[in-house]
Design a protein around this nucleic acid. Structure first.
Lengths: 241, 241
DNA sequence: TGAAGGTATTTCGTATCCGGTATACGCTTA
DNA sequence: TAAGCGTATACCGGATACGAAATACCTTCA
C-alpha cells in the first residue's frame, strides 16, 4: 500500500529502471536467495551499461534486497515468509503513526477527498475492476500519508513498501471486501479525530494484508522452480553443496 | 543507538567510505540542505574515482540524505529538527518492537550478558569515560536487538540509525545518568518477560534521546556557518532566488 | 588421496569519451 | 530600457576500455 516511489516523472534514470527490474525478479521468486547477481548481466538484460546497473545493485543493497560480499559480488539476500511478516509489522507501525498524525491534522477538504476515493474504491470493487481498485486503494493510503505531513516518516514507509509488489492485493480472493470494511473503520477514526483509534485501525489493516502476502510468498517459495528455464541473471546458484 | 553498520569487516568498499564521508558532512552541518554534491568533487576529496563516488551518492539517495534532480545532479535533502524528531519517533517504534521480541525470547545467558554490559556502562559513567560509555551503550542495545531475532526489523532500524552521528550522546550533560535509569527499567521489563512494559520503556528511552539530538541539531542549524571557509564540496549554494 | 601451485576468471576501481540537456549569457528588437 | 530570442558553455548521465588484485578452479605431484 501507498507506493509513492516518485513515479509520474516519466523519465527515470537507468539505475532506477534496473533496480525496479531486479527487485521485481527477487520478489516474484525468479531470483532465489543466494543467487549472485552481476552488474553486466543486468545491463545486458536491459540493454544498458554496467555503470548504471552497478549503481542499481548498490541501491538494492541499501534496500536490503542484496548482500555485497567483498570481492565476491552481490547476491540475493535471504528472504522468508517470516521476513515478510516482520516487514509488514514495521510497515504497520509506521503507517499507524502516519494515520494518527493524519487524524490530528485532518481538514474538511481532506475528509471529502478521502470519502470520494473510498466510494470510487467501492464502485470499482463492485465492478470487479482490479486495476482501478488497486489504484484507488493506493490513492486512499497515499492521501492519508500525505496528510500526516511528515517527510521522513513517509520516507521510512516508502522504503519498506518496496517489498510489496504492485497489483498484488486485488488478486487475493476476499481482499476487496475486507479492504472496504477496514477503510470504513479508518475513515470513522479520522472523522472523529481519534488518533489512537485511527492508529489501531491502520495497524490492524496492514498486518492483515501482510499476512496474506506472506502466506502467498511461502507458497511460492515452496514450489521447486518457477517454470521458466535458463534464468538470464543467474550464473551461479547458491552452491552450498 | 545500536549502530551496527557492518563494521568490523575491516576492508570496506570505496563507495562505503564515500557514503560515510558525505553522510558525516551532512549530519555535522557542513553541507547545508540544497547544496549540490558532485561525484567528482567527492572523489577528489577522498582521492578516489567518480564511479564509486557516484555509487555512494546513489546509496545516500536511497537513505534519504540526498535528492536527485534529473539532469541537475544530487543535492542535500532538506533536514530540520522536526525531521530528526520524526525519525526518532519511527526509530522508537521499531526499537520498541525489537525490545518486545527480545523480552519474549530472553534466555538466562542473555540476561547475564545484558547485566554485565549494564554494570560496565555504570562503571564507565562513574569514571566519566565517554568512549567506553558510548561503546557499552551500543553493545547493550545491539544485544537486545539481536535477541529479537528479526533480520528485517533490524535492517529497518539500521537504516534509520544512520541519521545518528557516533559519539554524540555521551557529550550531552546529564545523558549518562538518564541512560542508566532508563536501562534499568528496560532490564526490569526484560527480566520479567513483560513485552508491553519493555516496549514502552524502549519507546520512551529513544524518544527522550531523540529530543536531545533534535534540539542540538536546531541549535547548530541556527548558527550562520560552521567556522570553516571554502567548503570543498559545495560548488553551488541553493540559489533559490 | 591429499596438498601445492599455477592459471583463469571476476570483482573493483580508474580513466576517458560522448551525446543530450539545461542554464546562462549576450544580442537583437520593440 | 526591458523583453524576447539564439547561441554557447557547463555538466549530467551513460558507455567503454583498461588494469590490478583477489578468488576460484584445475592440474600436477608426492
Amino acid at each position: 500500500m501507498s507506493n509513492h516511489s516518485s513515479d509520474g516523472s516519466g523519465r527515470r534514470q537507468f539505475s532506477d529502471k534496473a533496480a525496479a527490474y531486479v527487485r521485481g525478479l527477487i520478489m516474484s521468486g525468479e531470483l532465489r536467495p543466494g543467487t549472485t547477481v552481476r552488474p553486466e548481466t543486468v545491463g545486458q538484460a536491459l540493454s544498458i551499461s554496467t555503470t548504471p546497473a552497478r549503481e542499481a545493485l548498490q541501491a538494492l543493497r541499501v534496500e536490503g534486497f542484496l548482500d555485497l560480499l567483498p570481492r565476491r559480488g552481490f547476491q540475493v539476500a535471504p528472504l522468508t515468509g517470516q521476513d515478510i511478516r516482520d516487514l509488514f509489522r514495521v510497515q504497520a507501525l509506521i503507517a499507524g503513526e502516519l494515520a494518527a498524525l493524519a487524524a490530528a491534522n485532518c481538514t474538511e477538504d481532506d475528509l471529502a477527498e478521502l470519502d470520494a476515493l473510498h466510494h470510487e474504491l467501492i464502485a470499482a470493487a463492485r465492478r470487479n475492476d482490479h486495476e482501478v481498485l488497486e489504484d484507488k486503494n493506493h490513492a486512499f493510503h497515499r492521501h492519508i500519508n500525505k496528510m500526516a505531513g511528515s517527510r521522513k516518516t513517509l520516507w521510512a514507509l516508502s522504503l519498506i513498501t518496496r517489498y510489496v509488489p504492485r497489483q498484488f492485493y486485488s488478486s487475493i480472493p476476499g481482499w476487496p471486501q475486507a479492504t472496504v470494511t477496514d477503510h470504513e473503520e479508518l475513515l470513522e477514526g479520522i472523522r472523529s479525530g481519534d488518533t489512537d483509534k485511527t492508529r489501531a485501525s491502520m495497524v490492524a489493516h496492514i498486518i492483515h494484508s501482510g499476512e496474506l502476502l506472506a502466506a502467498n510468498f511461502d507458497e511460492r517459495m515452496a514450489a521447486p522452480l518457477p517454470a521458466t528455464e535458463a534464468e538470464p541473471l543467474q550464473s551461479d546458484q547458491a552452491s552450498h553443496r
